[in-house]
Amino acid sequence: MEADELLVLVAGGDQKAFEDLYGLISGPVFGLVRRVVRDPAQSEEVTQEVLLELWRSAARFDPRRGSALAWILTVAHRRAVDRVRSARAAGERERREARRARLPAFDQVSEEVEAGLEREWVRRCLDRLTALQRQSVTLAYYDGYTYREVAERLSLPLGTVKTRMRDGLGRLRECLGGAA
C-alpha cells in the first residue's frame, strides 16, 4: 500500500497501518532530519517527535493538497530546521561548524552518497543550477540557514538571495519534473 492510503487508515487509529507506514517513511524522515540536524542523538529525537505527531494528527492530512510523503517530509524538515537553529543559537555546534565551513555547501551532499536513483537524480539536477542558486537553496534546505544568514555567508544582498532561491527551485522543478 502507498503512504497516502496508509495514512488514511492511520487517521482511523489503525496501528498496523502505522507500522507499515513507518516502514515506508522512517528512512526518508530520519535521513532528512539527520541531514539537517547532523547530531545522531538529536536526529533520533526529532524523528521520534515527528513520527508521533504524525500518529496524533494523521487526520489533518488532506490528500487534495499533495502526497502524504511530501506532507510528512515538510513537517519533518521544519522540525529539523527549528532544532538545528536552537542548537546553533546555543552555540554548541560552533566549533564543528567552523571545521565544515571550509567546504562548499554542495559538497556536503556527497557525504552520504549511496546508490539510489532518486539521490543521483537530485544531485544531477542540483548540478544544473548556477553556483549561487545551488548554494542559496542547499544552505537553506540542507543546512537550515535563514535567507538572511545565507546572504551573509555568500556576501550577497538579501534580494539576490531570495531571487536565487526562487529561480533555483524553479530549475529544480523543471529538471525533476514529472517525478512527483
Binding site: G27, P28, F30, G31, L32, R34, R35, A70, L73, T74, A76, H77, V109, E112, G116, E118, R119, W121, V122, R123, V137, T138, Y141, Y142, L172, R173, L176, A179, A180
Partner: peptide, 9 residues
Amino acid sequence: VRLAWSTAA
C-alpha cells in the same frame, strides 16, 4: 520537498 529525496537513510 524534492530536495529531501536525496537524503533518505
